[in-house]
Amino acid sequence: MRYRRAWVPGGTYFFTVTLADRSQPLLTEHIDVLRQSVREVRARHPFIILAMAVMPEHLHAIWQLPEGDSAYSTRWALIKAAFSRALLPSEQISLSRHLKREHGVWQRRYWEHCIRDADDLSRHIDYIHFNPVKHGYAKRPIDWPYSSIHRYVRAGLLPSDWAGETAE
């Protein structure tokens, strides 16, 4: 089946990428592997990460692609493959995935949304930064260590008490 995706060269995209087994906290348990996978792909296929939050079993990200480039699916495939290869081969793999040479770590698909304008971008950045609170991983966005909110606070783009109590 062919899925319809938005292909806007140089576009800005919001993504949700999820593990196949949402009961496994692999992304935060292996955050260094995920970070290295992203760094390696960015070195070969540049993109800017405008916002990102990694939860134990899923992540949200906003990427801006270079002018004339719309190959975000290639980037995700490479990131997912590098992360999967780095983990011990302990996951159960279905026959269907085995025949397609897929690891069982990630869901095959992901959610993508092409950012339309500044308001859309702002809403999605806020969604990403608040997501750890929404899922009960933190009481305040600033308390979650795997979020770009820390970069936004350091840059003075958000106060440390954004969407929560004053940081101590």
Results as ranks from 00 to 15, higher is better:
Pro145Gly: 07
Glu102Cys: 02
Arg123Cys: 04
Lys100Leu: 13
Asp117Trp: 11
Trp111Thr: 00
Arg101His: 15
Ile125Glu: 05
Trp106Leu: 08
His113Arg: 01
His135Phe: 13
Tyr110Trp: 04
Leu121Ile: 10
Pro145Thr: 00
Lys100Ile: 09
Arg109Val: 04
Ile149Thr: 12
Leu121Lys: 06
Lys100Val: 12
Gly136Arg: 06
Leu99Ser: 03
Trp106Thr: 03
Tyr137Glu: 08
Tyr137Cys: 03
Ala118Ile: 02
His129Asn: 07
Tyr146Lys: 02
His150Ile: 15
His129Trp: 09
Arg123Pro: 00
His113Asp: 03
Pro145Glu: 03
Trp144Gly: 04
His103Tyr: 13
Asp126Asn: 07
Trp111Glu: 07
His135Val: 11
Ser148Arg: 05
Lys139His: 12
Phe130Cys: 04
Glu112Trp: 09
Asp143Tyr: 14
Ile128Phe: 06
Ala118Phe: 05
Ile125Asn: 01
Arg116Ile: 12
Ile115Ala: 03
Tyr110Arg: 01
Arg116Tyr: 11
Arg123Ser: 03
Glu112Phe: 06
Arg101Tyr: 06
Asp143Lys: 01
Trp111Lys: 02
Tyr110Met: 08
Glu112Cys: 04
Glu112Pro: 08
Arg101Asn: 02
Leu99Cys: 00
Tyr146Cys: 01
Lys100His: 13
Asn131Ala: 13
Ala138Ser: 07
His113Phe: 04
Pro132Phe: 08
Ile125Gln: 04
Asp119Leu: 13
Ile115Cys: 01
Arg140Pro: 10
His124Ser: 00
Arg109Ala: 12
Ser122Glu: 14
Ser148His: 07
His150Lys: 06
Arg101Ile: 15
Cys114Glu: 09
His129Ile: 15
Asp119Tyr: 12
Glu112Val: 14
Ile142Asn: 00
Phe130Lys: 02
Lys139Val: 11
Asp126Leu: 15
Arg108Gln: 11
Arg123Gly: 05
Asp126Gln: 15
Leu121Cys: 11
Asp126Val: 10
Tyr110Lys: 01
Gln107Gly: 13
Val105Lys: 04
Trp144Pro: 01
Tyr146Val: 02
Glu102Met: 15
Lys139Ser: 15
Gln107Ala: 00
Glu112Asp: 10
Val133Ala: 00
Ser147Glu: 11
Ile115Asn: 02
Asp143Cys: 13
Asp117Glu: 02
Arg109Leu: 07
His129Gln: 12
Pro141Val: 05
Gln107Leu: 06
Gly104Pro: 12
Ile142Asp: 00
Pro141Glu: 06
Phe130Leu: 13
His124Phe: 12
Lys100Asp: 01
Ala138Gly: 05
Arg108His: 09
His113Glu: 08
Tyr127Phe: 14
Asp143Gly: 13
Cys114Pro: 07
Ala118His: 08
Asp117Met: 04
His150Asp: 12
Pro145Gln: 00
